[in-house]
Design a protein around this nucleic acid. Structure first.
Length: 106
DNA sequence: CGTCTGACGATGC
DNA sequence: GGCATCGCCAGAC
């Protein structure tokens, strides 16, 4: 464990294509419900190969285009993710459910 | 060791 | 639904 970041990267790496997870959700999975900012910060320093484009804000908003060169949205579309007219990800349709969240069920 | 920062979240208007 | 404010946690300086 190099720290919280390492855990974040490991979890983000397990997000399947076509699905997305929110910062808060990830933080909660790591038992740090208030560390949503840390997750976002970890993403900023995310290593290459990490599907950080699948990690978005709780409102379905993507990271600033200046950070992603505007590729995040196009990439998600390619994976089958749909957006609202406002350009927000349809969380209800693409929100990821990890094994730890199976308690959600239906 | 103190302070600032930041791809956030919840709440209030 | 959008904007403003406060609160939070870990890392960088």
């Amino acid at each position: 464990m190099a720290g919280f970041f390492q855990e974040v990267y490991q979890l983000v790496a397990e997000i399947p294509a076509g699905k997305v997870a929110t910062y808060g959700q990830i933080a909660m999975m790591l038992e740090r419900p208030r560390a949503a900012r840390i997750v976002g910060w970890a993403m900023h320093q995310a290593p290459a190969g990490l599907p950080c484009h699948r990690v978005i804000s709780s409102s379905g908003r993507l990271a600033p285009e200046s950070v992603f060169a505007g590729q995040q949205r196009a990439r998600l579309k390619t994976e089958g993710v749909t957006f609202t007219d406002a350009g927000l990800v349809k969380l209800r349709q693409h929100l990821w459910q990890s094994d730890d969240e199976t308690k959600w069920e239906e």
